[in-house]
Amino acid sequence: GIQEIVAMSPELDTYSITKRVKEVLTDNNLGQRLFGESILGLTQGSVSDLLSRPKPWHKLSLKGREPFVRMQLWLNDPHNVEKLRDMKK
């Protein structure tokens, strides 16, 4: 599951990941809330907090790293936007 992926993950640049996620969401007119609930399993508040103030990787616990790994996996998925759009319906 995701825990193994997080444990094996190389250090991620949390700042550039969140910046990229925000760009993709904005460009495709997708909400942070939808993204947070569907992709990260987080509430709106947690998501906007994460996206606006990402902590550096080395300061995060494994649990804290999980959303960033999920974001990275989502960014790597060529169908990420379509999938999210489908969830919106």
Rank of each mutant, 00 (worst) to 15 (best):
residue 44 Q to W: 11
residue 88 K to I: 07
residue 6 V to S: 11
residue 81 V to K: 03
residue 54 P to H: 03
residue 83 K to P: 01
residue 87 M to I: 13
residue 59 K to S: 13
residue 41 G to I: 00
residue 6 V to G: 09
residue 82 E to F: 07
residue 12 L to F: 06
residue 78 P to R: 06
residue 85 R to Y: 08
residue 41 G to R: 07
residue 38 S to Q: 13
residue 9 S to R: 05
residue 17 I to F: 03
residue 82 E to G: 10
residue 82 E to T: 12
residue 26 T to Q: 13
residue 28 N to C: 02
residue 8 M to Q: 15
residue 17 I to L: 15
residue 9 S to G: 09
residue 17 I to C: 02
residue 59 K to C: 08
residue 62 L to A: 13
residue 52 S to G: 09
residue 61 S to E: 06
residue 11 E to M: 11
residue 73 L to A: 13
residue 69 V to Q: 08
residue 39 I to T: 03
residue 28 N to I: 01
residue 68 F to A: 00
residue 50 L to S: 04
residue 21 V to W: 01
residue 5 I to E: 14
residue 68 F to W: 07
residue 76 N to G: 09
residue 37 E to Y: 06
residue 85 R to M: 15
residue 1 G to D: 14
residue 68 F to L: 00
residue 38 S to H: 14
residue 68 F to N: 07
residue 32 Q to W: 14
residue 87 M to K: 14
residue 8 M to F: 09
residue 13 D to K: 04
residue 21 V to S: 00
residue 16 S to R: 11
residue 50 L to M: 13
residue 15 Y to P: 05
residue 55 K to M: 14
residue 24 V to T: 11
residue 51 L to H: 03
residue 14 T to Q: 02
residue 72 Q to V: 04
residue 23 E to F: 05
residue 82 E to N: 07
residue 57 W to M: 00
residue 45 G to Y: 09
residue 81 V to A: 07
residue 65 R to T: 00
residue 40 L to K: 00
residue 75 L to F: 00
residue 73 L to P: 03
residue 38 S to I: 11
residue 72 Q to A: 13
residue 29 N to F: 08
residue 60 L to D: 06
residue 58 H to C: 15
residue 76 N to E: 12
residue 23 E to I: 06
residue 19 K to P: 00
residue 74 W to V: 01
residue 15 Y to H: 13
residue 57 W to F: 04
residue 30 L to S: 01
residue 79 H to R: 13
residue 65 R to A: 01
residue 50 L to W: 04
residue 78 P to E: 10
residue 61 S to G: 12
residue 3 Q to V: 06
residue 46 S to P: 10
residue 10 P to F: 04
residue 4 E to W: 04
residue 77 D to T: 05
residue 25 L to S: 01
residue 81 V to S: 03
residue 34 L to F: 11
residue 58 H to Y: 08
residue 27 D to W: 08
residue 9 S to F: 07
residue 64 G to V: 05
residue 87 M to F: 10
residue 38 S to A: 11
residue 39 I to E: 04
residue 61 S to L: 03
residue 13 D to T: 01
residue 30 L to K: 01
residue 14 T to G: 01
residue 58 H to S: 15
residue 79 H to A: 14
residue 60 L to W: 03
residue 2 I to D: 11
residue 70 R to H: 05
residue 20 R to D: 05
residue 24 V to H: 06
residue 70 R to S: 05
residue 37 E to S: 08
residue 48 S to P: 12
residue 35 F to L: 04
residue 31 G to F: 00
residue 65 R to N: 06
residue 16 S to D: 15
residue 86 D to Q: 08
residue 24 V to M: 10
residue 27 D to S: 13
residue 65 R to E: 00
residue 66 E to I: 11
residue 53 R to N: 12
residue 33 R to C: 15
residue 58 H to V: 11
residue 80 N to W: 04
residue 80 N to T: 04
residue 73 L to Q: 15
residue 83 K to N: 12
residue 9 S to L: 06
residue 49 D to L: 10
residue 83 K to I: 12
residue 65 R to S: 03
residue 17 I to M: 03
residue 3 Q to M: 13
residue 28 N to W: 02
residue 69 V to T: 07
residue 50 L to I: 09
residue 7 A to T: 09
residue 66 E to P: 04
residue 21 V to Q: 01
residue 46 S to E: 08
residue 19 K to L: 09
residue 39 I to K: 04
residue 84 L to P: 00
residue 66 E to A: 06
residue 69 V to A: 04
residue 21 V to T: 03
residue 75 L to G: 01
residue 41 G to V: 01
residue 9 S to N: 10
residue 80 N to Y: 02
residue 27 D to Y: 11
residue 29 N to R: 11
residue 45 G to N: 15
residue 18 T to V: 13
residue 27 D to L: 11
residue 26 T to L: 11
residue 4 E to N: 12
residue 51 L to F: 15
residue 3 Q to H: 08
residue 25 L to R: 01
residue 35 F to V: 00
residue 53 R to G: 13
residue 46 S to Q: 15
residue 16 S to I: 13
residue 88 K to R: 08
residue 41 G to S: 08
residue 50 L to F: 07
residue 62 L to F: 12
residue 16 S to F: 14
residue 7 A to S: 14
residue 24 V to G: 00
residue 33 R to T: 12
residue 31 G to K: 12
residue 64 G to C: 03
residue 32 Q to V: 14
residue 14 T to W: 02
residue 59 K to N: 11
residue 53 R to Y: 07
residue 68 F to E: 04
residue 26 T to C: 14
residue 67 P to K: 15
residue 75 L to E: 02
residue 15 Y to R: 09
residue 35 F to W: 06
residue 25 L to T: 01
residue 19 K to N: 10
residue 86 D to C: 06
residue 89 K to E: 10
residue 10 P to K: 12
residue 39 I to W: 01
residue 74 W to D: 01
residue 19 K to C: 07
residue 1 G to H: 06
residue 78 P to L: 04
residue 10 P to W: 09
residue 88 K to N: 13
residue 37 E to F: 02
residue 43 T to I: 03
residue 37 E to K: 04
residue 41 G to H: 15
residue 88 K to S: 09
residue 8 M to V: 13
residue 61 S to C: 08
residue 60 L to G: 00
residue 48 S to E: 12
residue 31 G to L: 02
residue 6 V to R: 06
residue 5 I to V: 11
residue 50 L to G: 01
residue 5 I to A: 12
residue 43 T to C: 14
residue 55 K to V: 14
residue 35 F to A: 00
residue 62 L to V: 08
residue 48 S to L: 12
residue 59 K to L: 15
residue 58 H to D: 09
residue 20 R to K: 13
residue 55 K to C: 15
residue 12 L to W: 02
residue 15 Y to D: 14
residue 23 E to R: 13
residue 49 D to Q: 14
residue 73 L to K: 15
residue 34 L to K: 11
residue 1 G to R: 08
residue 75 L to M: 05
residue 77 D to P: 01
residue 48 S to G: 14
residue 27 D to G: 12
residue 28 N to H: 12
residue 38 S to M: 15
residue 67 P to I: 05
